[in-house]
């Protein structure tokens, strides 16, 4: 990882040695999220039998994806173990910790409490979807600069909650940030820095 001093408030890439590469082809994918096709209507009613898998279409981080899923599979399981997007973490699978927070149509929700079949046709954004190509996005950069994490396991969820807040409210106060991450436990206790990162993320985004 390399922290690029030349670009205040941004520009963290993994390529400390080759920072010239990798920033060119960026803009497109992030814009792609915003301009993704409107969710397709739900498919016509049909019963999916219990032990069958069914093909479902997901829009994940701007890309359409088809997966085979059982009705009981959670969106979290499909993201992590089927698609392989492991940035979204499992902490409890009970809707109690927030490590699995993703945006569904721009709104933070627990992927563990969402059936994959219920996410069909919805726009899903995970922490990987906040990347600006190879660079960390503004919320991620703010978390880096404010050291808003320790072990990093709750962090993708915290980031998604802050991202969700900023998409709705671009200039939140500390209390709004606190409330926005109040469904995300951090056992390392990095809360104070998370609040600060929320503030900084807003200013990075508004630049």
């Amino acid at each position: 990882m390399h922290y690029d001093e030349k670009k205040p408030g941004g520009g963290v890439t993994r390529r400390g040695f080759m920072q010239i590469i990798g920033t060119g082809a960026v803009g497109a994918s992030f814009a792609g999220v915003a301009m993704a096709a409107r969710p397709e209507p739900a498919p016509p009613e049909k019963m999916i039998p219990a032990e069958n898998t069914v093909k479902i279409r997901l829009h994940v981080n701007g890309a359409k994806q088809e997966v085979l899923a059982e009705p009981r599979w959670s969106l979290l399981y499909v993201l992590r173990e089927v698609i392989g997007l492991t940035g979204t973490k499992e902490g409890c699978s009970r809707g109690e910790c927030g490590a699995c927070t993703v945006l569904i149509d721009n709104i933070p929700r627990y992927a563990c409490m969402t059936l994959a079949v219920e996410a069909e046709g919805r726009k899903i954004t995970t922490v990987e979807g906040l990347m600006d190509g190879e660079q960390l996005g503004p919320v991620q950069t703010a978390f880096l600069e404010e050291d808003a994490y320790q072990c990093g396991y709750c962090t993708p969820g915290q980031i998604m909650s802050v991202e969700g807040l900023l998409r709705k409210n671009p200039d939140p106060g500390t209390d709004e940030i606190r409330t926005a991450v109040s469904g995300n436990l951090c056992r390392c206790g990095a809360y104070k820095n998370i609040f600060r990162a929320g503030k900084k993320a807003a200013s990075l985004k508004n630049k």
Partner: peptide, 16 residues
């Protein structure tokens, strides 16, 4: 981990 169930998403209240 959830046990098995079948799933249906009706489009009308009547079917629901």
């Amino acid at each position: 981990m959830l046990p098995h169930f079948s799933y249906v998403r009706p489009e009308t209240l009547k079917d629901t």
